[in-house]
């Protein structure tokens, strides 16, 4: 309640003096942007796959604070990443590092796509080869037929 009154008083004061020296243009500092960039790569460990930038959890808030404090002390983004890795392990990163057994994860989809594509290509070629060239092709489907008829009508 007290806070409300205070806020209303402040608001009234500001409204009555619209362009007083109180108003300021606020902007992000370089530090803010750096904090955001780093925070987006770190996982909020108590949330469901959320990074500490997007999460509203208290732990995420404190981790953002740690990132900011360390940046102020002159640590590089790499140092900060190393620090969190040394406390929480790979789990803290939003994506698994691309080394060791994790190659399975990173390369898996592309291996599947290439392998599947190659397999499919061979199969299709094989099927085409085994299919006898049919002189009496069955009637093409309706939309094609309609179109052909139309084209025929137009030509005639």
């Amino acid at each position: 309640m007290l806070m409300m009154i205070r806020l209303i008083v402040t608001a009234l004061f500001i409204l009555s003096t619209p362009w007083s020296g109180l108003a300021e243009v606020q902007d992000e500092t370089l530090l803010d942007i750096q904090v955001r960039e780093i925070a987006k790569t770190l996982r909020c460990t108590v949330c469901q796959t959320e990074n500490i930038w997007e999460s509203g959890a208290p732990l995420a808030q404190q981790m953002r604070g740690v990132v900011r404090d360390r940046l102020k002390l002159g640590h590089s983004p790499e140092d900060i990443k190393e620090y969190f890795l040394s406390r929480y392990g790979d789990y803290i990163m939003m994506q698994p590092p691309a080394h060791g057994v994790n190659w399975f994860l990173w390369a898996g989809p592309f291996v599947l796509l290439l392998g599947g594509g190659l397999f499919l290509y061979k199969e299709v070629i094989g099927w085409v080869r085994r299919t006898p060239a049919s002189p009496t092709a069955p009637p093409p489907p309706l939309d094609e037929k309609a179109r052909q008829r139309l084209e025929h009508e137009l030509e005639s």
């Binding site: 790569t41 996982r43 796959t49 990074n51 392990g89 790979d90 789990y91 803290i92 990163m93 939003m94 994506q95 698994p96 057994v101 994790n102 994860l105 990173w106 989809p109 592309f110 796509l113």
Partner: peptide
């Protein structure tokens, strides 16, 4: 093999070409 997170950066990178 320990605990890891597979988050949006992974999917964005891998899913996009597909």
């Amino acid at each position: 093999g320990g605990k890891v997170t597979v988050g949006p950066p992974y999917y964005n990178a891998v899913f996009m070409p597909i």
